[in-house]
C-alpha cells in the first residue's frame, strides 16, 4: 500500500479537493483506494455523504479500543472506501502525546490495512503538529497543493526547510500548483519562477474553478457529476502523474 498525505501547513489551498478527486480517480482505475479524513472539519467525509462520526473518537483509536479496519465505510463508488472524520480529531495531538512512541502512532494504526489497499490518501488538517510528524513518518509522499501567492509560497518554504532538518522523515515532497488563476499576472509569474527550482513540481496545475466548490453542493467527486469539466480533467492528469511518481504498478 502506498500512502500519500495531502498536506499543507496553510489552510484553504485545495487539500481536500485533491484528496477526494485523486481518490476517486485512483479507484476508477481499479486501485483499491482508502481515504482517511483526518481533518476534524470533515469536508472530505461530507463530500461522500458519510456521517462524520467515529465511535469512541480519537481516544478509542489511540487507546487500542478500536481497530481502524472497523471504521471503514464503503463509498458509493467502486474500489473506494473512506474512514470518516470525527470532531474529536481536533484532539488527536493530545491523544498521540499520551501514547507510547507518539510520532509513530499513525504507522501503528495503518499497519493492519497494508494488504487490503493499493493506495491510502490521508487528508489532514492544516497545521504543523504532532499529527504532521506522524504523517511525515507514515507517508510515502506528501502531496502539497501550493497556491501561487506569496503567503502560500512562504509556508511551502517553511515546510521544505522543516523536512530538510527533520531526522525521521522518509517521505517524498511532491508539490503541485493549486487554484491557479491564469488571468492573474502574479499567479503566472510565481508559477514560472517556482518551476525553475528543482523541487519536483508536478506539471499539472489545478485551475481555480467554481466546479470545485460545487462539489460540496453535489456531495460527490467531480468525476461523478462533471467528468468533462476542466477541473475534473486536471485532477485526472494530476493522478496520472502522481501514479507514475509513486510507481504504482499499471
Amino acid at each position: 500500500m502506498k500512502i500519500v498525505a495531502t498536506y499543507n501547513i496553510k489552510g484553504g489551498v485545495g487539500k481536500t479537493a485533491a484528496a477526494v478527486n485523486l481518490a476517486y480517480r485512483a479507484a476508477e482505475e481499479g486501485y483499491r483506494t482508502l481515504l482517511w479524513d483526518l481533518d476534524p472539519q470533515g469536508a472530505a467525509t461530507f463530500c461522500f455523504r458519510i456521517r462524520p462520526r467515529v465511535k469512541g473518537g480519537a481516544q478509542a483509536l489511540v487507546g487500542r479500543e478500536r481497530d481502524l479496519g472497523d471504521l471503514v465505510k464503503g463509498s458509493d463508488y467502486d474500489n473506494l472506501d473512506l474512514i470518516p472524520a470525527d470532531f474529536s480529531y481536533r484532539d488527536l495531538d493530545v491523544a498521540f502525546h499520551g501514547a507510547n512512541k507518539p510520532a509513530k502512532q499513525l504507522i501503528r494504526l495503518l499497519r493492519p490495512l497494508d494488504e487490503a489497499y493499493d493506495l491510502l490518501l490521508l487528508d489532514s488538517a492544516p497545521s504543523i503538529s504532532l499529527v504532521s510528524e506522524n504523517l511525515f513518518r507514515a507517508a510515502d509522499a506528501l502531496l502539497v497543493p501550493v497556491v501561487p501567492t506569496t503567503l502560500s509560497v512562504r509556508t511551502f518554504r517553511q515546510l521544505q526547510e522543516h523536512l530538510q532538518g527533520g531526522k525521521n522523515a522518509r517521505c517524498a515532497l511532491i508539490p503541485f500548483f493549486s487554484m491557479v488563476d491564469r488571468r492573474r499576472r502574479l499567479h503566472r509569474e510565481l508559477v514560472e519562477a517556482l518551476r525553475r527550482e528543482p523541487a519536483g513540481w508536478l506539471a499539472t496545475e489545478i485551475p481555480f474553478a467554481a466546479q470545485v466548490e460545487v462539489m460540496a453542493v453535489h456531495r460527490a467527486p467531480l468525476g461523478a457529476f462533471a467528468p468533462r469539466a476542466a477541473a475534473a480533467l486536471a485532477f485526472k492528469a494530476l493522478w496520472n502523474e502522481l501514479r507514475d511518481r509513486l510507481s504504482l504498478a499499471v
Binding site: G30, Y31, N79, A249
Partner: peptide, 9 residues
C-alpha cells in the same frame, strides 16, 4: 492488461 488493483491483483 488490468492495473494491479482490486481486480488485477
Amino acid at each position: 492488461d488490468l492495473p494491479g488493483g482490486a481486480l488485477g491483483s
